[in-house]
């Protein structure tokens, strides 16, 4: 992207945010149009049902627009929205009592670092994540996809850092198994 265009976009976004914070519905709509598809995808990481994910996303945007005045314009707007979405998803899962973290003791073993097939569909990846139990899935997405640290995850989910690490390890184990299956099905072998 042309750097000038990026600057232009940034300027436009800053203006839109200012207008949107003054309850300008058009500005809010534009911001929504820009960010909603990405944010729905983010919500979908955590929530199996796309309708529920959309519900969570709309609740997240509602919070975004009602608390827009508290947004620090120095940071990334997308990052701010994204964090709100993740929190909304956590709240949603908590309300549904789907968020459970198993406290089984685990033995950390080396996991094979296989590559995934280049042809693997994003829908298939989502499917792999969907298979994970809620607790594993949450920590895995937050750590591997969102890039949060274990300490941050522990705070956001109100769990110990150790629990966060064990959840991630188990999620990885399960994913490896699923990937092996997928590779064997598509290529007849686990090795790519």
């Amino acid at each position: 992207m042309n750097p000038l265009k990026v600057i232009q976009l940034y300027k436009n976004e800053a203006q839109l945010i200012k207008k949107a914070s003054q309850n300008n519905r058009e500005a809010q709509h534009t911001l929504y149009e820009w960010h909603a598809p990405k944010m729905l995808s983010v919500c979908r990481y955590y929530i199996n049902d796309v309708h529920h994910a959309e519900e969570v996303m709309l609740n997240g945007f509602f919070k975004v627009f009602t608390k827009l005045k508290s947004f620090n314009s120095n940071g990334s707007f997308e990052g701010w929205i994204r964090r709100i979405m993740v929190n909304e998803a956590i709240s949603f899962l908590r309300a549904k009592k789907q968020l459970e973290f198993s406290s089984d003791e685990i033995i950390y073993q080396d996991i094979a670092t296989n590559n995934i097939n280049e042809e693997i569909d994003v829908a298939q990846i989502q499917q792999l994540i969907d298979y994970l139990p809620e607790g594993y899935r949450m920590v895995f997405v937050m750590y591997a996809i969102e890039g949060y640290k274990h300490s941050e995850i522990a705070t956001m989910l109100s769990i110990n850092e150790g629990t966060s690490k064990s959840q991630l390890f188990k999620a990885r184990q399960l994913l490896q198994q699923q990937l092996k299956k997928l590779n064997t099905v598509t290529h007849g072998t686990n090795e790519i």
């Binding site: 929504y32 729905l40 995808s41 959309e54 509602f62 989502q126």
Partner: peptide, 21 residues
Amino acid sequence: KLEQRTIEPSSNAWQKLSDKL
């Protein structure tokens, strides 16, 4: 792969949000 993905919300989603606001 996941970061590149976008999901278009349903057509009436904005209307819902707008009404709520």
